[in-house]
Design a binder for these strands. Structure first.
Lengths: 232, 232
DNA sequence: CAACGGAATATTGTTGACAATCGACAATCA
DNA sequence: TGATTGTCGATTGTCAACAATATTCCGTTG
C-alpha cells in the first residue's frame, strides 16, 4: 500500500503531510516539553493562529492526543492537559510494569539473533554513557532500549499501550534521581532483562522486565517522600 | 433572559448533549452489534446524512472511537472498523487478564462492605440465571459484574483500559460456548474472586481475577481449534 | 461592603462549502 | 491483447462563518 506519506518519503519530495499530523506532533512536543503546563487548557483559536492553520486540524489533533492520555476533553469547556495525581502516576507505573513483563516475555520467546545483538549493544552503550557521565545520552539510549523491546515483541495493542503510558508518565514532570548510582542500578536491571532474553527464558524475562518498572515506581516513591519531608 | 437553553428546557426540546456524544454512542453500537462489519470503512457523508448531522461530529466521534481501539484511521482513505486477527485478540485477552488482576487486587484491598455485598449478590444472581437457563440474563449480569469490579477498584487508567479492551475483544465477534457447563465454570471463578475480595486477600484476588480471563482465552483457543478442524 | 444578576466577551460546537486526494474505469498505444 | 495513462466521481482534508455555551466583569442592591 502506497499512501502520500510513503510517497514523499520515498521520493524525498516534501509532499504536504496532513496538517493534523504536523499539529499533533507539535502539540505533543509542547506538552511533553512542558511548554504547556499540566492542567492548562489548549486554546483552539490561539493555537490555530500560532501554527497558521484553521481550528479543524487543531481540534482533531487534540482529540488524537486524547488517545494517548495526554489530554482530556470537557464538553463546552475545551481540552486540558492532563494533570495526573501521584496515585494515578503510580497506577501508570504498575500498568506499564505488567505490560513490560508481557513484552519482555514475548521478546524472549520470539526474537531473532539480530534483535538480541542490538539489545545487548544498547546495554553496553548505556554503560559507556554512564561511565562518560553523559546523563542525556543515557536517557536517550534508555528510551530507545525500551522502545526497541516494545517493537521487537511483535505485539500490537500492548506495544501501543506501552509507549502511550510512557508518554503519560512524563506528565508528572518529576525527574528521577538520575544519579550515577541509580543509572548503574537501572542498567544492571537492563542487563538481567537482556540476559534472560538471550537464553530465551520467557518467564525470567517477564519478571525482570516487570520488576524493572516496579523499581522505577519505588524510586519515584522514595523521591516523593524525600521531597515531602524536605518541603514540610 | 431568553436563550436557547431556556427555550429548549421550556419546550422539552432537549439537545444540550453534544451531538458528538450521540453520534459516538450510535457508532459504537453499530460497530459492536455488527451492523458495520469489521474491516468496513465508515463513510462520513452517508453516516452524517443518516444521522441528520454534519460531517464534523461524525469525524470527531470516529476519532473518539479510535481511543477505544474500535477503529483505525488511514490518511486520505478514511476510518475503518478494526479487524483484529486471532493473534491480536489473544493478546487482548492477556492484557485484559493482567489488568483484571490489578483491579481485583485493588478491590480486595480497598473496597467497603457495601461493594463486597453487591459483588456477592451478583454472583448469586448469575447462579440463578444459570439454573433458570437464561443465557441472556447471565451475559448481562456477567458484564455488570466485571464493570463493577473495574469501577470499585478506584483506579483511573486501568479501569478505562479494562472496559476499552472489553469492547475491542468483541470485534472478533466470536461467541464463547455459553453452554451451561461453561457458565457454571465461569461463575465458580467469579465466586473465588469474590471470596478472595471478601477476606481482603489481594494476592489471591489478583491471581483469580487474572486466571479467570486466561481461562476465557483458553476457551476461545479451544473453540477456534474445534472450528478449524471442523471446517478443514 | 459583599452577594447577586445580567450583559459583554471569549471559547467551543456545528455547519456548509471548497480544495486535495484516492480508486475506478475508459481511452490510448505498443 | 495487455499495460499505461488520463479523466471522472467519490471521499477525505481544510477552511471560514454561524450558533450555542461558558466565563468574565461590572453595576445594582441588600
Amino acid at each position: 500500500m502506497l499512501n502520500a506519506a510513503n510517497m514523499c518519503e520515498a521520493t524525498g519530495f516534501r509532499r504536504q503531510r496532513p496538517l493534523v499530523l504536523e499539529v499533533r506532533d507539535e502539540l505533543e512536543r509542547m506538552i511533553l516539553d512542558g511548554e504547556v503546563p499540566a492542567g492548562a487548557r489548549l486554546n483552539e483559536p490561539s493555537l490555530a493562529a500560532q501554527m497558521g492553520v484553521s481550528r479543524a486540524p487543531v481540534r482533531e489533533a487534540a482529540r488524537s492526543l486524547e488517545r494517548d492520555g495526554l489530554v482530556t476533553t470537557v464538553t463546552n469547556q475545551g481540552v486540558f492537559v492532563r494533570k495526573p495525581s501521584v496515585e494515578q502516576t503510580l497506577e501508570l507505573y504498575e500498568l506499564r510494569a505488567m505490560i513490560a513483563g508481557l513484552l519482555c516475555g514475548r521478546v524472549a520467546q520470539t526474537s531473532d539473533d539480530e534483535t538480541r545483538t542490538t539489545l545487548r549493544a544498547r546495554v553496553t552503550q548505556m554503560a559507556d554513557a554512564i561511565e562518560a557521565g553523559d546523563q542525556e545520552d543515557y536517557a536517550a539510549q534508555n528510551t530507545a532500549f525500551h522502545d526497541q523491546i516494545a517493537q521487537a515483541a511483535g505485539t500490537h495493542r500492548a506495544t501501543e499501550l506501552y509507549v502511550a503510558l510512557g508518554k503519560e508518565v512524563r506528565l508528572l514532570r518529576l525527574r528521577s534521581p538520575d544519579g550515577v548510582a541509580a543509572m548503574r542500578a537501572s542498567n544492571a536491571e537492563h542487563d538481567r532483562i537482556v540476559a534472560a532474553i538471550e537464553i530465551g527464558d520467557a518467564e525470567t524475562a517477564r519478571l525482570e522486565g516487570s520488576q524493572h518498572h516496579l523499581n522505577g515506581k519505588a524510586r519515584l516513591l522514595e523521591l516523593l517522600d524525600r521531597t515531602d519531608t524536605t518541603q514540610t
